[in-house]
Design a protein around this nucleic acid. Structure first.
Lengths: 106, 106
DNA sequence: AGAAACTACTTGACAATGCAAAGTAGCTGT
DNA sequence: ACAGCTACTTTGCATTGTCAAGTAGTTTCT
């Protein structure tokens, strides 16, 4: 089974949700998502998502030093991002409800 | 909000699930899905899904007359389709669990 | 009979997004 | 100096939903 398609769209909302908890950076977001069940997620997938979110103005970015390793890009959510996240969560609930209606009902 | 991306992959499994309940045809599948919450689904999206499922051998197809209107393509699920649906359902549960972990946890 | 409305399926161009695979580079410990 | 970890980037690719039409058979209303 290939779960690639199931991830579409969901990932963007989840990344935003992680950032909404407080300023963080790519590598940390990656580990949080992987620990929570997105275990096949790779950097080449995550970083473009961050770029997209930034372009849409949903997150803000600053470069800062790391206590260990190369410097990081720290992301935080914007008011637009909060609004988008709320809309996303609602929409996601609607779709999953519809899917459950169909899949559960034999 | 655009729910296009959220549909990806989910739709294929849902269509298969509807067909698994018994032989049916495109137009009917469309109305079942729309009644269950996929209210923006259109024909141009559904029919390509059916073609894909058929190409993968997950559903079988026969052409038959309709009691009203033009003739229909009747679809039924194959053993491969049943197996795929089971795998899909499991995988879907896993992804939605992961997403819930992330989205619910403030 | 003619027109409109409904049933039913088809097609081509398009955009969004995840993945694979590879690269660049800083830092730490041996 | 070398290995291993941290951290971000880039290019090319495949999949899939949508838009916007189009083709046709059947029924109903006038």
């Amino acid at each position: 089974m290939d779960d690639t398609q199931l991830l579409k769209g969901v990932l963007e909302g989840c990344v935003l949700s992680v950032i909404s908890r407080g300023e963080t950076y790519g590598y940390e977001i990656l580990s949080v998502l992987m620990e929570n069940g997105f275990d096949t997620l790779i950097e080449g997938t995550l970083y473009p998502v961050l770029t997209r979110l930034q372009k849409k103005g949903l997150i803000a970015c600053r470069v800062g030093k790391s206590p260990l390793g190369p410097s990081r890009k720290y992301f935080s959510i914007t008011p637009e991002g909060e609004a988008y996240l709320a809309a996303f969560t609602e929409n996601y609930a609607k779709i999953t409800q519809a899917a459950r209606n169909i899949l559960d009902n034999e």
